[in-house]
């Protein structure tokens, strides 16, 4: 690792390899599963949908591919992309390498909302419709609360926001734990399954529900790269350079939190993607968010689909919770990144 910022050639190479990884991930997501269906047949089927050749898949195989694997693949791509880009954005806006998309209370709020639905306080809430809805609402309320406590004051800065996020998260988590304690063991098991995250219940409906949020929020995050590069010199200096710091911070935090909340409501809490993906990308292409963010979108999407493929296969026939897989990969990778960084900086 040289101490000089990476060259344009290296960035192009990394981008190309990341795209190759994405294609490989898409193939894995469609081709690997409990039922073995030949990859060639699947590709033939995909091509036949564009009007070339004929599909040799049976109707049932076609159902497996298009109703089960495809929505799960797409939801995985969306979740990975969103969590990674939101993590990178948070790290930029807070100038804090440990920032992740759950920093301002999204996770705790969504957890409380989902627990509320699963424990079924109101009666009739424990349905596939209410759980994501309440999780989403909980996440947004939590972030709004954090912003209200720590983000509005005249002298508020990144540090006060982070502290407010920690406090709000702690409060909501304690409420969530309390609710969980009051419920039956059956509900507790379901809450845990939700908390650990999974793509198992993916359907086209869940894909379309999160799609607009993810596209809009990912676009805003990626476009904020230049602003985040300016912010790397700190709030005062970037203001002196003409950056409307407060407005940028609000927009960027709102976008990354909204997108994260949408994803979390659909797939539960999947940890570590938001931290390690931007860090790996940073290690490869340098510190500019104009490069980190777009590459993280692709890298994160590919990473999560690979992780989900592992989750589906290592313990087959049953599935591992996706959050367990990402943490199991994420934690050691994070340690390696830290030691590499320490060696690089001086």
């Amino acid at each position: 690792m040289s101490s000089n910022p990476p060259t344009a050639r290296r960035v192009a190479l990394v981008s190309a390899l990341t795209l190759v990884g994405l294609v490989a991930a898409v193939v894995c997501g469609l081709a690997i599963g409990p039922t073995s269906i030949a990859t060639a047949k699947i590709i033939g089927d995909v091509v036949s949908h564009v009007g070339i050749g004929h599909s040799s898949l049976s109707p049932l195989q076609s159902t497996v591919i298009w109703q089960l694997r495809a929505p799960r693949l797409v939801l995985g791509l969306l979740a990975g992309a969103m969590l990674a880009v939101a993590g990178g954005t948070y790290q930029g806006v807070f100038r804090n390498p440990l920032a992740d998309p759950y920093l301002l209370g999204v996770a705790a709020g969504a957890g409380l909302g989902a627990t509320f639905a699963i424990v079924d306080i109101g009666g009739g809430l424990n349905t596939p419709t209410w759980t994501p809805l309440l999780a989403f609402a909980g996440a947004m309320v939590a972030v709004a609360f954090t912003w209200g406590v720590g983000g509005r004051g005249l002298h508020s800065n990144a540090a006060t926001l982070i502290l407010a996020g920690v406090a709000v998260s702690a409060l909501l988590t304690s409420m969530q734990t309390f609710l969980q304690q009051q419920s039956s063991s059956n509900s507790i098991a379901r809450v845990y399954i939700w908390l650990l995250g999974s793509l198992a219940s993916a359907s086209w409906r869940s894909v379309w529900l999160v799609f607009p949020y993810v596209i809009l929020c990912t676009a805003i995050c990626v476009l904020s790269g230049r602003a985040l590069d300016v912010m790397s010199v700190g709030e005062d200096e970037s203001r002196s350079l003409g950056l409307p710091v407060r407005r940028v911070r609000f927009i960027v935090i709102a976008a990354s939190s909204l997108g994260t909340a949408a994803i979390v409501s659909a797939v539960g809490l999947i940890g570590f993607v938001g931290i390690i993906v931007p860090h790996i990308v940073r290690l490869l292409v340098g510190t500019s968010y104009r490069r980190i963010l777009p590459i993280s979108v692709v890298f994160g999407a590919a990473f999560l689909v690979f992780a989900d493929t592992l989750a589906r296969t290592v313990m087959a026939p049953s599935e591992l919770p996706l959050g367990v897989v990402t943490a199991a990969i994420g934690a050691p990778v994070f340690v390696i990144i830290l030691s590499l960084r320490r060696r690089m900086v001086r």
Binding site: G33, P34, T35, L60, Q61, T63, V64, Q67, L68, R69, A200, R312, P317, S318, E319
Partner: peptide
């Protein structure tokens, strides 16, 4: 066909498995 000794006769099945078993 999808049970192991670990599940004691109560296996977890993926939706893909159920659909393909038809």
């Amino acid at each position: 066909a999808d049970s192991t000794t670990a599940d004691a006769g109560y296996p977890e099945l993926s939706s893909e498995y159920i659909v393909s078993a038809n």
